[in-house]
Design a protein around this nucleic acid. Sequence first.
DNA 1: AGCAATTATGTAAGCGCTTGCATTTTGCAT
DNA 2: ATGCAAAATGCAAGCGCTTACATAATTGCT
Lengths: 341, 341
Amino acid sequence: MAKSRSAPTLDDVAKMAGVSTATVSRCLNSPDRVVKATRERVQSAVDALGYTPNFAARVMAAKRSFTVGAIIPTMENAIFARGLQAFQEELHQRGYTLLVSSSAYKPEIEEEQIRTLIARGADGLLLIGHDRDPEIYDFLDQRNIPALVAWSYLPDSKLPSVGFDNRAAMFDLASHVIGLGHTRIGVISARVDGNDRARLRVQGIREAVADRGLEANNLTVIETSYEIENGAKAFNDLMNAATPPTAILCGNDVLAVGALRQAQKMGLDVPGDVSITGFDDIELARIVSPALTTVHVPHREMGHKAALQLIEMVENQTAGTGEQLATRIVNRPSLGKPASG
Amino acid sequence: MAKSRSAPTLDDVAKMAGVSTATVSRCLNSPDRVVKATRERVQSAVDALGYTPNFAARVMAAKRSFTVGAIIPTMENAIFARGLQAFQEELHQRGYTLLVSSSAYKPEIEEEQIRTLIARGADGLLLIGHDRDPEIYDFLDQRNIPALVAWSYLPDSKLPSVGFDNRAAMFDLASHVIGLGHTRIGVISARVDGNDRARLRVQGIREAVADRGLEANNLTVIETSYEIENGAKAFNDLMNAATPPTAILCGNDVLAVGALRQAQKMGLDVPGDVSITGFDDIELARIVSPALTTVHVPHREMGHKAALQLIEMVENQTAGTGEQLATRIVNRPSLGKPASG
DNA sequence: AGCAATTATGTAAGCGCTTGCATTTTGCAT
DNA sequence: ATGCAAAATGCAAGCGCTTACATAATTGCT
């Protein structure tokens, strides 16, 4: 039965086609440097043998892997899925493979993943957000690995970034909410430590509050981790205060959905009794009822542009310029005016 | 500034520590085969240099990658996320890395991914479902690559499987629905072509219908692809028939959520006017309202056990025995008795 | 103290591929 | 025909690591 043959090698192909390994290699990698007759002979040998190049050997010899790595905080919810998908598609089109891993929002895991990806020969790296140990930047620098940040645009940062202005986006949303007449604002944020997106979003809210002349004590911020249940719990805490907020701004759609669930469980009408907003505009935001007012992030555009930029950096040894993308507020029924009472 | 040094190699470490490369390699891979003093000297050299082993070189020399690949139909929705997460965690614990790619439910892409993963040195493969070109099994066989199927258990198949009985699970749910008094059943299924899970689920429904003595023409099946919008559209078609069904069984939770949305849009009460059920019990099923009656799949257990089994196959060259896991019906408000009229 | 059995380390041969350089073949103008 | 530049192919040296096998250093006994 199926004898455990091992995979055919370049050498096998070369022998069968009656050429040198160099020629076979060239047939595969730069077909135009080889005459048609030879190329066809080699091709049939490849087909006959079912030859597939050994990736490790290729990487080693070429010092190039056509692989880029991406490290995202989590795969558990859909926040990064869309953007990453677009990133992947663009890479694939240009002949690159994407390796994804997740850091579970833990800096030390992210660092380990970066090392792993580099050891695996990644030609470039996509990272999320700017907050990380400076040593990592030194390491990247020293190893000369191109890296790009997404999901947060900052003009002057160690690494170029393709993303949006988290602070401004949330500032606009908060201003809009306050403009509707809300005066007591609750915030359910992701942990801001090591997470510039979360930190900047909260900052945007604070600035809007100040800007609109509200007292800072009209603002209550709860930090929790990214899970629906935590959004629910935080909502509960917020609403059980002596003077509960009339609008709750959530750091992302997942937390907002948790808040919404809890509101329903508590018999509160949204937006009649309390308004709730999200951030990201993932599919979930449209599916729940009432649908969530949220900040739309151009995920696909971001993924796409990040891919182009990273490839450019890899192939031409350039520094990368970064790009700021626009977000926009999406008004849906979860946000309304505060009850007049 | 930052001069583009290239990564330090085993040789650099060996020189700095004043030992041979063999010793350094041993320090890293089987520390007990090296005396403590040497080990420490090597370790400090590793630290000082910031050495990270080159993965490609290691794979090449050791003919072992401690990497396993998984090819799932889609990453776009949460269906596979949980199980894969558990799979990953278990692998990680045992020192393996997981490489994931998605086939977009296309057989030819799956085949390409299999080749890619093998070229990358995957020691083993996790595949979803049993339906695929026999040539693939020959290829795996010939290359002697251990592979395991998940999400569908079949006792006699080419590859061992860790999963559940899709037919029986759906048979039970359909029987339950019919038991409540429903006589006109609609089904929204994923495309069954090349998808044994979908096919077996529909088969389970057909068998339940026959088993309960309903005429086959009380059953209407629509096939569509896995997206919320398609679930909505199919629901619409089903309900616009002359005698619309009183219960709609969906092939998974995503389609069911689409159906639910559409019901709400059409002003239909669920389950008052029509009952809707899902399959998988992903988070979404609990979040929508009314929450979905669905079939709970032990995703984490499946991922976990699949990992253990695959590692066993890889490390001991065994064939793999497979394992059948139990599912259970989760009753939630989306399912009720048919309106008596 | 002396010898065999252990244990620690070194030597060097690959693993399968790419690529700079050398060599052969081809196409063409003379 | 002849010569020469250009195109096609071959040769062989690595890429950074692991691992038989050989050698050197220890250890435990008598």
